[in-house]
Nucleic acid binder design. Structure first.
Length: 405
RNA sequence: GCGCCGGUCGGAUAGCGGCUAUUCCAGGAGACUGUAAAUCUCCGGCCCCAUGGGCAUCGUUGGUUCGAGUCCAACCCGGCGCA
């Protein structure tokens, strides 16, 4: 077993553990840095490492489109490709079913403001003709590339094949992250689909691990490779050592969440992701419902979360891993975490504030730069601005979880 | 002094007789949760019974016109040229 629980909280689901991977041990609970396109935006791996980050998460959909999973495979896997020597994960592309599908062009994302009355008006979402880049088909999802408009069809099998080529230590089953605006009937259908896809993802994973010499061409994205045309597939160095996490869905519905946890938890996954778009106020109950059911001895990853308060909530409710774009996205866009809340560094009052973001912060940014300087870099649109802010934000969140641990 | 060209928001611009004066930048505020994001939104003349509404405004003053940033005249300012 590559996950060992060291300590448990009394009267709650929280625990401390160690998740072992071929690229090192992960001390959980942990915050995973998001590096969608095999880079944590604006940071080099040394800077990522210096924030205390243990794990980086890439994305199947993005890397499949560019540069292509074959390229990453040729480089020796995502870690070698991006020069990150620590553990890696890849998301399956399931989130893009949501963000490029039903959420495309709309003001909805991972967290929904449940108070927004527009979500209660079903007519507003009767928009099957609305433009979207992802459409759910019979046994997979067709994506229209946001890069060049070309069409790709991703099935659970395809997602797993890509993720085997990408070679991350931990990979995810292909799922459907549903919109909170969908009705109960749709949530049920989507959940059934995600469950079928989970079984197929697992089957493909086992098949690739057990018969790495199958026909290569089946997994190929393009008919013709301009450099070579191997007819047989060779195993990647990582093959057989990758952990596959299944993903629990079920929206806001207690019975669906529990049903999903029961089903996904019964399958032979190495760990689990908890997915979906949440309303802030019912995220904790959804996580608790699920983690009370999932097998205790396997790690759980709360996908795409979160804000500092979400991290406390998650750990308390038995979450072992988190990932979120916020530290880097907020940083790049000029919002910075502090113990007293977020600040917008471009605000006038920081233009002549010659203190570090936080006096007692040990990150590279705080040890070396003032708010006035960082504000100046943002106003001047200098590249270093996003880098310094991302370093601080990532350090802040990673170390918050470290302290919680 | 004469001639030509030009004066529109802090800067740069569009606008060539018609309805709410355009866009970019700068400035201000906000948003962002498995990254279509170094992105996006809103504000930037005055007033009021303020989720709306009213009144202004294109160098100045007059004029033509149902209607003028736009056409005409004079003046002011700037650039260029000629004396």
């Amino acid at each position: 077993m590559n996950f060992k629980i060291e300590k448990k909280l009394e009267n709650s689901l929280g625990r401390v553990g160690i998740l072992s991977t071929p690229h090192g041990d992960i001390l959980t609970p942990v915050f995973v840095a998001v590096g969608t396109k095999a880079t944590v935006k604006s940071l080099n791996p040394e800077q990522v490492k210096e924030t205390g980050t243990q794990v980086v998460l890439g994305n199947t959909y993005h890397l499949y489109l560019q540069p292509g999973d074959e390229i990453v495979r040729g480089a020796g896997g995502i870690g070698k490709f991006m020069n990150w020597s620590g553990p890696t994960m890849t998301d399956s592309g399931g989130f893009q079913v949501f963000s490029l599908g039903s959420a495309y062009g709309k003001d909805i994302s991972k967290i929904t403001k449940i108070t927004d009355p527009s979500f209660l008006i079903p007519e507003r979402f009767d928009d099957s003709d609305a433009p979207r880049l992802a459409k759910i088909g019979q046994d997979g999802v067709s994506f229209k590339s946001h890069l060049d408009g070309s069409i790709y069809y991703i099935t659970p099998e395809k997602s797993i094949q890509i993720q085997h080529n990408l070679g991350a230590d931990i990979i995810f089953a292909f799922d459907e992250c549903t919109s909170p605006a969908e009705d109960l009937k749709y949530q049920e259908e989507a959940l059934e689909r995600t469950h079928r896809w989970a079984e197929r993802s697992l089957a493909e994973h086992q098949k690739l691990n057990n018969s790495p010499l199958e026909e290569y061409s089946a997994s190929r994205r393009r008919e013709v490779d301009e450099f070579s045309t191997p007819s047989r597939r060779r195993a990647t160095p990582q093959e057989g050592n990758q952990m596959l996490f299944g993903i629990v869905q079920g929206g806001r519905e207690e019975n669906l969440r529990k049903k999903s946890a029961k089903f996904i938890g019964s399958l032979d996954f190495d760990g689990f992701g908890i997915g979906g778009s949440f309303a802030k106020e019912d995220m904790s109950s959804a996580v608790r419902w699920v983690n009370e059911i999932l097998p205790e001895e396997k790690p759980r990853h709360l996908l795409g979360i979160g804000e500092p308060e979400d991290l406390f909530m998650g750990v308390e409710n038995g979450v072992d891993l988190f990932d979120c774009v916020l530290p880097t996205r907020l940083g790049r866009n000029g919002t910075i975490y502090t113990k007293n809340g977020k600040i917008i560094i471009m605000n006038t009052k920081f233009r002549n504030d010659f203190q570090p973001i936080e006096k007692d912060c040990e990150c590279y940014t705080c040890k070396n730069y003032t708010k006035a300087y960082i504000a100046h870099l943002f106003h001047g649109k200098e590249m270093l601005a996003g880098t310094l802010a991302s370093i601080h934000n990532l350090y802040f969140i990673v170390n918050l979880v470290k302290k919680i641990r």
